[in-house]
Structures are given as C-alpha cells and as structure tokens.
C-alpha cells in the first residue's frame, strides 16, 4: 500500500495557481502552451464564465499561433483548429450528449494526430480523456479571481511549475 502510494506520488503531481484577472489566466495559458509537446491533451473543467476559453487563448499565444484573434469558443462548431508550433485542436464538449458523440466527431483520432488537444468541459466525457492528459480545474473564487488546480504526469507538472516561476519574474 505504502509503495503503491509512493508510485502514485511520483507519477502524477498537482500544482495550484491563483489567478487574479483574465490577464493572469492568459499568462498561465501561455506557460502551458510554451511547454506543450506533440500528442499532449489538456483537459479543462470549470463552470460557465470560469475562463476556460481565456486560458486557451493564452495556450495559443504560448504556441505562437499567428491568428490569435481567431481563438474563440468552439461550443457550437465543436472543434476549432489553429496552426502554431503545434497544430491545436480546440474541442468543446459542452453541447455533446456524452462520449458516443465525442467519438463520433473523431476525438480519438485527433488525440493520436501528434498535435495538441485542448478540450473544454472535459468532465462531461472523462472516460474518453487519455490517461496522459493534464487536467486543469478552474474554480470561481471571486468576481475576477480564479483558482486553477493542475494535475497531470509528474514530469509535465514539474516543467510547468518551473516555467511558471520564470514567467513570474
């Protein structure tokens, strides 16, 4: 049991980021974009108005997506695609009935495509999210403040942690 727990501790890690404004949320996004690797999946959780799309704007910026103004909510169109250092698939599960519909729009294929997949409302389709995903849960803590809890593979989270401390300086 003890050994199992230690393995768990070493394979996944969690950090918490307190955002005081949409600008701060985008800064976290830029850090996530700057460390993203081919095949990464960023799974976002948070209520309406939590700032999920704002975070994705930052991710796109961190990846050098040229048409940053084109980064907007994919709720209706289901998937937006952007070109940057990695090809970005911006997916939104808000309107989907569940994993069957997510499969139907080709989610499993795009997770194998070597791009970066960012999916909003990931908690609605949790069973289809790959185990390597980095989860970001956004909690509304005040009018403009948000708590972001990032959980994912140990190495990924450590890389984000050090990139965040550099970007804060």
């Amino acid at each position: 049991m003890g050994a199992f727990c230690r393995v768990m501790k070493e394979t996944t890690a969690t950090i918490t980021f307190e955002s005081t404004s949409p600008d701060e949320t985008r800064r976290l996004g830029r850090v996530l974009g700057s460390v993203a690797k081919p095949g990464d999946v960023f799974a976002l959780i948070g209520t309406l108005g939590a700032g999920k799309t704002e975070l994705v704007k930052g991710v796109a910026s961190g990846l050098g997506v040229a048409d940053e103004g084109g980064v907007n909510s994919p709720t209706f169109v289901l998937v937006n695609e952007y070109d940057g250092r990695l090809h970005v698939y911006h997916v939104d599960a808000y309107r989907l009935g569940g994993t069957t519909e997510l499969k139907a729009i080709g989610f499993e294929e795009i997770c194998q495509s070597g791009g970066l997949v960012v999916i909003e409302w990931a908690d609605r389709v949790g069973s289809l999210i790959p185990s390597r995903a980095l989860w970001t849960a956004i909690e509304v803590t005040g009018d403009r403040t948000r708590r972001m809890v990032l959980t994912g593979p140990f190495d990924d989270v450590k890389r984000i942690e050090s990139a965040l401390s550099i970007s804060a300086e």
Binding site: L48, T53, E54, G69, G70, N72, S73, T75, F76
Partner: peptide, 17 residues
C-alpha cells in the same frame, strides 16, 4: 468577428444559467 463567444452561444448559455 467575435473574440470569444458567438452571440447565439451567449443566448444558449444564458438560457442554461
């Protein structure tokens, strides 16, 4: 163009709220 939500999306989300 919109920088975040489309107008129709805002209507749907407000209906949800």
């Amino acid at each position: 163009r919109t920088r975040d939500d489309a107008a129709g999306e805002a209507f749907d989300k407000v209906a949800m709220i």
